[in-house]
Each structure stands twice: as structure tokens, then as C-alpha cells.
Design a binder for these strands. Structure first.
Lengths: 221, 221
DNA sequence: CACCAATCGTGTAACATTTCACAATTGTAG
DNA sequence: CTACAATTGTGAAATGTTACACGATTGGTG
């Protein structure tokens, strides 16, 4: 699902070495379902079976994925939900709040900057950049929009590692280059174009049209 | 594969069931890059090598993927860009314009409905639904927002097969059920929750937080 | 015309991922 | 205290995906 072209992962101090990226991609999904169970509050433990049923994944896959990081479950009873949430947050380095830069404050950047869903999931939109004089200076979700000219200085100074890119396709590669040059190591881009980044930088793509196109193949006329 | 199976596959009008979904997922990316080449307009042909370099994919993978659908290239010269675009559009059933329903006209649904990028890529936001009396009746991108109560009637009547879902997590499953019951077969959802749908219905997920979480694993602290 | 560089399509090998199936462990009920 | 149902973690088998390597074909050049 997901799109192709991601840079190769650097090693993490912990266990990162031989964990397949495809497994890493499933952990946020597990975490999301587990946090939902916490909210529901009607159970203390769950099983790989129950979790898998909710997510449409086999129980064996969940057990195997989790076993790459440790023994989190208990035979006969399953997984303690709160404990597993904690462990997944630790593995994914979500036991902190990452400041994120939003580049592009058009319709989409505006909507995402306002999105309340980052809270409690590890992220906070901390800076917003745009190149439109009308937009610069306005506040979005309590954050002042800065001119994109100051991007390098701010990101370097604040050691920002994560950025979201919501600019036109024509500007995406240049801005990605500037983000990388400013120390950003993870980019979530909404521009409908593949961008090239050096090794060690991760890119995730979100192109609604490409996602729709992936489904029409299966539709009847 | 035996010879018999091979010839059946060749003659079968419906090649869909032997094609891995992961290949289908790459075709829109190829198409996107090829359409960009068309826009650039400086070349008539391209090669699997050039395309792969742009996308960070091996040339062999591109050749193998395409070869599942036919022989589109020519030894020595590569692929005729316009022809390959046409073929990919045909394969992905993008040689028409699919009407899409947008469910949820909050910040995100609003932004997506306004997004100009659907044009010329096979889609058109044709209906917008919301449950907020303030929003219903307003126009977004020239489309009148209807009350979600009328969803079933409209989608059935218009035979809509594709929907985008931009509603809170708590409402997502119920609305997905209603979409499916109304004949929708492909759902692109922005709600941060896994939804369950019957066989034959495709779902694509776009949860910005999950995508960010997938990258933090690789970041240094 | 003969040669050569470019490039495809593809069989096969290598590698990656998922599923299976079961011993081991746990908590519970009688 | 024992029997049992639930459930994990995991080695091995099955399945799926990618990369390699090469014959075949093409168009261009001398």
C-alpha cells in the first residue's frame, strides 16, 4: 500500500537491523487498534486472534511480527493491552512528541495543520511555511505561517526531523531537497510526484489519485 | 504454469486474477511518471532504465510488471511514452471519468473536494455528503453539499462505485457499511481506523499519523 | 551490408514473507 | 490438585516477489 520508492533505512541503536520494513508498516496499525481498545475500556487483555479479526490480518502474522521485538504476550491469556501499547510506542519512538514542519499552506496543508488527530499519537505541527504573501503571517491552528525563505534557518535551529509536504508537484522536488539539506530525515508528501532523496531519508507518499487508480483495476465497468 | 494453463490465460479476457496486487499498486506510479514525461514533451520514447531511475525502482521490475499485461516495448528503443500511457490507462480502467462521492465535508473533505488534481487522471468529485446542517446546502468546488441521509438513494440511483470517506473514526465503520450497501465497491478512507468490508470491496487507507509513525522508527532520537 | 550499442521479455535463481502446526504455558473450573 | 481450553512463540514449509543474466531484436553508423 503504499507506494514504492523509499530510501533504505538506517540502523537504529536497538533492534532495527533485520526488521523488515513491511513489519514496521504494520505496527502503527496494530497500535491504532490497541489504542482504540484502550478507549473502549472494556478489556484488559486481547489476543492475536481478536486483534487480527479486527484488522483483517492473520493471528500468526501478528504474533510473528511482535515476536521480532520481544515476548510481549502470555500463553493462555494473550497480550496486556496497555503494556503492548507502551511497547509499540517505545519501538516506534512515539514515547515523546515529535515536532513536525508543514510546508505548503494551501487547501490541503491548511486542513492537515488544523487536523486534531496528531495529538496523543506522537506528533505536533509546530511550524508552517508558505510562499504566498497573503498566507504568510496568518495563523492556522494557533501556528503562525512563516515565509518559506526562512525554512532552512528554522529547521536547522530547531533540529526538525519530520516534515509534511503539501505543495504543487512542480515545487516538490526542490522543497524536498531543501528539507533534506536542513536536516529533515522523514518526509510525508502529498505532491503527486516521486521525489528523490539521499540514503537515510525516508519518504512516505500520499497521492489520493494514485490510491483511487489502484482500485479501479478491480471494478467492473 | 503448464502449457494448457498458459494458453487459457492468454485467451482469457479477464487477466485480473493472475496479477499480484502489489504490481497493480505500482502501475499508477509508472503512469504518473509517464504523464509527467508527456508534459515535459522532450521525448517520444523512454526505457525501463530511465523510468526506473526516476522512480527508484529496478528496470527489471518495470519490465516484468509490464510484461504481465502485454508486450508494450521494442528492443533497442524502449517504450513509446504515449502508447504506454494509453495502455496503462486502459489496464487501470482510467480511459473514462469515474464519478466519486465524498463523504464528510470537514476540513479534510473540503480540501480534497476542492483539489484540482483529479482532473485528467480519471476522477471527478461528483457528490458531497455531510451531516452538519450548517454545511449542507453550501457549495464546494461547484458541488452542492447534500445531507448524508440521502446517501443511499443518490449512490444507488447514480450507480456510484467509488467513495472517499473523510469522517471521524467513530462514524467511519457505519458509513462504510452504508456505502457498501449502496453499491460502492472502492473506498478511500482518511479515518484513523481499520474498517471491515465484505469481499469484493476494496479499501485504501490514508492516515497521515500512521504514515508518520512508520518513519519515526528509523529516526535517531 | 556488417557491426554495435541499446534495450526488451523472460526463465531461473535468490530472497522475502506468510502460513502452518505444534510444544509449552497459563488460568480456570470442578 | 487435576484436567482442560486458550493462547503464545517459533521452526519449517509454502508461497510470493525481486533480481539476475542472457538470447533476441532494433536502429544507427561507417
Amino acid at each position: 500500500m503504499t507506494e514504492i520508492e523509499e530510501s533504505i533505512a538506517e540502523e537504529s541503536p536497538d533492534v532495527a537491523h533485520d526488521i523488515p520494513d513491511i513489519v514496521i508498516g504494520r505496527l502503527p496499525i496494530y497500535l491504532r487498534a490497541l489504542m482504540r481498545m484502550v478507549e473502549e475500556g472494556d478489556k484488559v487483555t486481547t489476543s492475536s486472534q481478536e486483534l487480527g479479526d479486527r484488522l483483517g490480518v492473520s493471528s500468526a502474522q501478528i504474533r510473528k511480527d511482535l515476536s521480532l521485538f520481544g515476548d510481549f504476550g502470555k500463553q493462555g491469556t494473550g497480550y496486556h493491552i496497555n503494556y503492548l501499547v507502551q511497547q509499540l510506542q517505545r519501538i516506534l519512538k512515539l514515547d515523546r512528541e515529535w515536532p513536525v514542519a508543514m510546508v505548503g499552506a494551501g487547501f490541503l496543508g491548511h486542513a492537515l495543520a488544523n487536523y486534531g488527530g496528531f495529538k496523543n499519537r506522537g506528533f505536533r505541527v509546530a511550524w508552517i511555511f508558505d510562499n504566498d504573501p497573503e498566507t504568510v503571517g496568518q495563523k492556522i491552528g494557533g501556528i503562525m505561517v512563516r515565509h518559506v525563505d526562512g525554512l532552512e534557518r528554522v529547521l536547522r535551529r530547531e533540529k526538525v526531523q519530520i516534515a509534511m509536504l503539501a505543495v504543487p508537484a512542480t515545487a516538490a522536488q526542490e522543497l524536498a531537497d531543501r528539507l533534506v539539506a536542513s536536516g529533515v530525515r522523514a518526509i510525508l508528501t502529498y505532491a503527486p510526484i516521486s521525489i528523490n532523496v539521499p540514503e537515510g531519508v525516508k519518504v512516505q507518499y500520499s497521492d489520493p489519485v494514485a490510491q483511487l487508480q489502484r482500485m479501479t483495476f478491480y471494478l467492473d465497468v
